[in-house]
Computed example of a mutant assay.
Amino acid sequence: MEHLIHPRIKNIEISGIRKFFNMVADRPNLISLTIGQPDFPTPEHVKEAGKQAISDNFTVYTHNAGLLEVRQAACRFVNEKYGLHYNENEVIVTIGASQAIDIAFRTILEEGVEVILPGPVYPGYEPIIRMCGAKPVYVDTRHNQFRLSADLIKPYINERTRCIVLPYPSNPTGVTLAQQDLLELAELLKDRPIWILSDEIYSELVYSGKHASIAKWLRNQTIVINGLSKSHSMTGWRVGFVFAPEFLTKHLIKVHQYSVSCASSISQKAALAALTAGKEDANDMRKLYEQRMEYAYSRLVDMGFQVEKPTGAFYLFPSIEPFHTSSFEFALDLVDKAGVAVVPGSAFSAYGEGYVRLSYAYSLETLAEGLNRIEQYVQKHKR
């Protein structure tokens, strides 16, 4: 019966991040710096709100778009934080940012259109694009500090271009876009029949200045993806948001409704606490991430790695060019000989080859041990 499975699904592979993590997870005494998951517990008041929802038997369907009070709180949150103006009819509560991306692509893409992405990039976009019958078009950002710019995009825009993905702060590189970058992109894309999918899931984890969204300048062309997984250490609660003008959300809600009906009612009550009483919860976590970043970045530089200093998220993306091997072979050898796991850069498109991703969403003690092992490996194997 396998021959009856849709060819597009058969040709899609499991994420390279998860594939490598699963491959090495059972190794004894392994220090894993692979998964981009906050190591902090969900804030107590958020957990209490979830518990209270269960105690109150609030275990029911909600409005397809999410509880009105949650949608209103989400709109206030992005307004106060980033100056974005949306109303309760212009936001949908989703099952994490991943589902928000899925319904956005399934609503705007069709057979034969193209989606421009920066390379390297998080691997969660391409499979959905291909399932929609669209074509991912990668733009090499390696010589522009991993930043997608108007100048880089311009040669790739044509009559088939339907969407441009702006995933900043970036997974896997940790870079952000400055306001000037966004202004130049907005000037290039203004009034063109092109959507911008702005994935801002790491918006609360910016180390210098404040996060800026291109939706401030191109509101009617922009789909903003956000959520609470990274900002409030709520990965397992699965709460995301998609913000878009009402003429688009009225179509997004159809795809959302027929795929999941609504987000978990219990998680939505927890989300309400996060967005209101906990709207500054990310501050203390961000300070600790920055300390870890400075430590890990300095250690890698001292070892001789070429690496862009992150300005957001919680990843480092050092080059392994001096080792003259593929990123997969390097990562596997690092596991075998040093007992530390990082993610091969090839998981982030062909433009990630020659790099590895290291997550510093781990304690300083874990980072220190992992980096000590990497240093010992480098001393023995660097050519």
Rank of each mutant, 00 (worst) to 15 (best):
S233R: 05
S265A: 15
S208P: 05
G354D: 03
F314M: 11
E13W: 10
L334F: 04
D39V: 14
D333L: 03
K19E: 14
N11L: 14
I5D: 08
A212S: 13
R142T: 06
M234F: 00
L67P: 01
E44W: 09
M293D: 06
A25F: 06
T366I: 15
V255C: 04
V239E: 01
R76M: 07
T366V: 15
L30N: 11
H232K: 11
H45Y: 07
S326P: 12
G352C: 00
R8D: 09
V224E: 04
I320A: 08
R238V: 10
I12R: 15
V342W: 00
I9R: 14
E90W: 12
D199M: 06
S319T: 09
L188G: 00
I17K: 15
V378F: 05
L188N: 00
G304L: 07
Q268K: 08
A212M: 13
I320T: 09
Y377D: 12
G278H: 02
K81I: 04
L4A: 12
A341K: 09
Q99Y: 12
D102N: 15
E2W: 14
L4D: 11
Q268I: 02
L248R: 04
E88K: 15
G370T: 01
L166M: 04
K10N: 10
H381L: 05
K382A: 08
M23W: 09
Y168K: 08
V335G: 02
Q37I: 14
R162Y: 01
V113S: 10
P28T: 02
N89Y: 12
I266H: 03
R383L: 13
D302N: 13
I214R: 02
A134Q: 08
N64F: 10
D140F: 12
R8H: 11
H143D: 13
R292W: 02
C132I: 04
I196A: 00
T62F: 04
Y168N: 07
K269C: 12
Q376T: 14
K154F: 02
L197Q: 03
D56L: 07
K250E: 13
D336Y: 09
N144I: 04
P322K: 05
I95Y: 12
W195I: 04
K135T: 11
Y297S: 03
L68C: 07
I194P: 01
I92F: 06
K250P: 03
S327F: 03
N220C: 01
T276G: 00
Y207R: 02
A25N: 11
D199P: 06
K287V: 13
L332M: 12
V70C: 09
S264N: 15
A350H: 10
D181M: 06
I128G: 02
I266L: 04
L218H: 00
I223Y: 07
H3Q: 14
K81S: 11
I201R: 11
L152F: 04
G240L: 13
R238S: 12
K51M: 13
H45W: 05
I95T: 14
A347H: 03
V307D: 05
T42H: 11
V175W: 00
K287F: 10
L152Q: 01
T34V: 15
V78L: 00
A178Q: 07
V91P: 02
S32H: 05
I253V: 06
D191R: 04
P310D: 01
A341H: 08
S264C: 15
L358H: 06
I223H: 03
Y168H: 10
